[in-house]
């Protein structure tokens, strides 16, 4: 296993290399000029050219790439063009809100969706199963921003039991953290609860039809033990896959939630950087996202082995 993990970690290097080259080229092939953005509306073409030269954007693209890549190898993601601050510090400052939102959401999703899916499967074909499936369809159908506005209206504006927007670090105040994160988590988690509950239900229904479950019944094993120890445990692999994909999708896909609830996370930083053509920040963010995806895939693969003794690397 240790060798496998080492091999997978080494494989990260060529993946990141390819990502770095593509990101650098694609961003520069797209429209936009950070110097023009920086200079402001009243700047003349000459002003913009002077700023372009200061930023080194007038240099041939391969020279720019060599400089940037050399810095990356030394762990330096460069300086933000728009904000004149180190890219690494900008990303670090925005990491916590996104991480907290993602982790809280995924914990909430697992705590709600897995039992929901298992209960639906256990009651396969009955009203409770249909109710869970109906919720699942609704959860898939409702856009995050619509749900977010409804939740804000009901809980923040009408009932007054939650703030409209903002983020508070749990290290500042745990109570205020949960108060601020509750509505964003509810908005964001609905679609993933629907997804994970559906997968859990389908997998558990399939597992409940296996021969060893019938054997367990005939041996007189209690219903609860059949569901929890036999059916659910053997259904974890596909569920974990979906959870892994969900975490990856969440990290890169929280833009809407962060915008509606004004959470200063990585999603908003990405949008701002794209709008400002802030090349170093976009490049840094994509590298971080790519690395995170690779890491999540690795963790999911390792989890397979832990959950299913038949899987060995």
């Amino acid at each position: 296993m240790a060798l496998y993990i080492l091999r997978r970690l080494l494989a990260v290097i060529p993946v990141m290399l390819v990502v770095a080259v593509f990101v650098f080229l694609l961003i520069r092939l797209g429209p936009g000029d950070p110097a023009a953005q920086l200079a402001g509306d009243a700047a003349t073409a000459e002003d913009i050219q002077r700023i372009r030269e200061r930023l080194g954007l007038h240099l041939p693209i391969h020279v720019q790439f060599i400089t940037w890549f050399g810095n990356i190898l030394q762990g330096d993601l460069g300086m933000s063009i728009a904000n004149n601050r180190p890219v690494s510090s900008l990303i670090l400052a925005r990491l916590e809100p996104t991480l907290m939102l993602t982790l809280t959401t995924i914990i909430f999703v697992v705590l709600v969706a897995v039992p929901l899916g298992a209960i639906a499967a256990w009651n396969h074909g009955r009203w409770i199963d249909r109710a869970v499936m109906a919720f699942s369809v609704l959860g898939f159908s409702i856009p995050v921003f619509v749900l977010a506005y409804i939740l804000i209206y009901v809980f923040a504006m009408w009932l007054g039991v939650a703030p409209v927007q903002g983020f508070v670090s749990p290290t500042d105040s745990l109570y205020r953290f949960f108060a601020h994160i509750a509505l964003p988590v509810l908005s964001l988690s609905t679609i993933y609860i629907a997804l994970v509950a559906r997968i859990t239900r389908a997998t558990v229904v399939e597992t409940l039809g296996e021969d060893y479950i019938r054997t367990a019944y005939s041996k007189g094993v209690r219903d609860r033990d059949i569901l929890l120890k036999h059916a659910l445990r053997n259904s974890w692999v596909p569920v974990v896959t979906v959870i892994g994909i969900s975490i990856a999708a969440l990290i890169g896909g929280v833009v809407v939630t962060e915008s509606v609830y004004n959470i200063p996370g990585l999603g908003r930083l990405t949008v701002d950087a794209v709008l400002a053509s802030d090349y170093p920040v976009i490049q840094g963010l994509i590298l971080v996202f790519s690395f995170t995806y690779v890491l999540i895939n690795l963790v999911v693969d390792i989890t397979y082995a832990a959950l299913d003794p038949r899987i060995r690397y």
């Binding site: 506005y149 804000i152 923040a156 504006m157 007054g160 703030p163 409209v164 927007q165 903002g166 915008s259 509606v260 609830y261 004004n262 908003r268 949008v271």
Partner: peptide
Amino acid sequence: WVNIPDHGTALNSVISGE
């Protein structure tokens, strides 16, 4: 100076007193 990109959220925040 708080940057709230969503106008609806910003307006709700003024109404709610945040």
